[in-house]
Design a protein around this nucleic acid. Sequence first.
DNA 1: AATTCGGGGTG
DNA 2: CACCCAGAATT
Length: 308
Amino acid sequence: MPAADDVTAVDRHTDLHEPVLAWFDVHARDLPWRSPRCSAWGVLVSEIMLQQTPVVRVLPRWRAWLARWPAPADLAAADTAEVLTAWDRLGYPRRALRLKEAAQAIVDRHDGQVPADPQALRALPGIGEYTAAAVASFAFGIPETVVDTNVRRVIARAVTGIGLPGASLTRAEMRLAQALMPARTDRANRWNAAVMELGALVCTARAPRCDHCPLRERCAWRAAGSPAAQTPARRQAWAGTDRQVRGAIMAAVRADGSVDREGLAAAVAKTGRLGSHRPAPAQWDRALAGLLDDGLLTDQDGRLTFPR
DNA sequence: AATTCGGGGTG
DNA sequence: CACCCAGAATT
């Protein structure tokens, strides 16, 4: 239930709509999943692939994926091994498993049609609050409030006046984002895409191009002198982590089809993906056990392969 | 609320 | 070389 000050916030910020929507009319990228001819399944696949993965890296894999599995039933019937191979180096390969599980659930529960209902979408494997809202809005024109890292950053700066949003999406942020939604359905759906695009192309995390921003004259952060954001907490390093070792093992299996468990270290070294890191035995065990437990690998009498 | 889960382009 | 990217699931 919105408080009185939220209503004030709406009155203060509805004037954001016109500049952002007008900017989007001119500067929106021509992405294939934005085409009116793109299926809901195409939108869903794009949203899964785009989770923590930049657009430019998704584009070629998305095209190949849709050409090979043009409908949920096609992916539901595919071998997991083929799916993991097609996922290639997109990262977070568990997403590929969940996408296949989602396809199976769509066949089982929704007669092979991607559901439009946000709650039904949210119930599918690998689909959280963001992705459910994005598919509902972009594929079906249901004006859910779509809040990704780009939207959070634009609102944090333009409205709240801080350099960067916090580590995790808060209820207050979500309520603010909802209060900023245009009232008309068509504008609300376009607003979702437009704010996201503004964050991706102009209001970027590292070096925002404020000179090109349609909100430069009314941005709260800029009005405050663009104060530096609070120093973010250090993230997990990459070199030497279990994640690096897991990724290297997956790369070895992708390259060779299968790998003898005894020769794992040699096969992985051949991929060159570990750099100078030489995992200790305990780390090999941990990484391998994790991949097996996640269903990303199977061990058939000492041969490691992708599951069928 | 904090962690885990890839990979690669970029300032 | 640190940082970031159309997040989700688990704890």
